[in-house]
């Protein structure tokens, strides 16, 4: 039976720029980087989660997308209409400050939510909207 997810796709507008963002700003590690002609299978991951990687897939016209479809998806990504996450952290405030100092653009600072989490929202350099979440300890009943 299926027992876990191994790869998730994040649509990006430029793979090299995305790689710089995810490694240098977010601190992710490179997992796979294989080329076949123009096609580049590029994945990154979080060191504490070795069995899940994120495929940084560039949006461009070709076999998969027509020029119109690629343009539409690019505009959706750039407009922040596509999201990934939530990314989990043990300390939302500290992670927020670290990422902010590295130049990551936040659209919402850490905010205490009534549904049990502290969450912030940032954007990657393609425009994807990312939620950064910290679980709050549950009250014993």
């Amino acid at each position: 039976m299926i027992n876990r997810l191994s790869v998730a796709t994040i649509w990006v507008t430029d793979q090299n720029e995305a790689l710089r963002f995810y490694t240098e700003k977010l601190g992710f590690e490179i997992r796979a980087d294989v080329k076949n002609g123009d096609y580049r299978w590029l994945t990154v991951g979080v060191s504490s989660q070795p069995d899940l990687e994120y495929h940084l897939e560039v949006v461009k016209p070709g076999v998969l997308f027509s020029a119109e479809e690629a343009d539409m998806l690019t505009r959706l990504v750039q407009a922040g209409k596509i999201s990934a996450g939530p990314w989990k952290t043990d300390d939302c405030q500290q992670t927020y400050e670290t990422l902010l100092a590295r130049g990551v653009e936040f659209v919402q600072p850490p905010t205490d939510r009534p549904y049990g989490i502290i969450e912030a929202i940032f954007k990657d350099n393609s425009g994807n909207t990312m939620v950064l979440a910290q679980d709050k300890p549950r009250r014993k009943s």
Partner: peptide, 28 residues
């Protein structure tokens, strides 16, 4: 997209050679 040094610092040693999954090859 990265310098060789930055690439090394960001890379995780691989247990197996990298490959493009068949689903991606067919999709593209």
């Amino acid at each position: 997209g990265l310098s060789p040094r930055a690439y090394r610092l960001s890379s995780r040693p691989t247990a197996t050679p990298g490959y493009i999954p068949l689903c991606a090859l067919r999709l593209y």
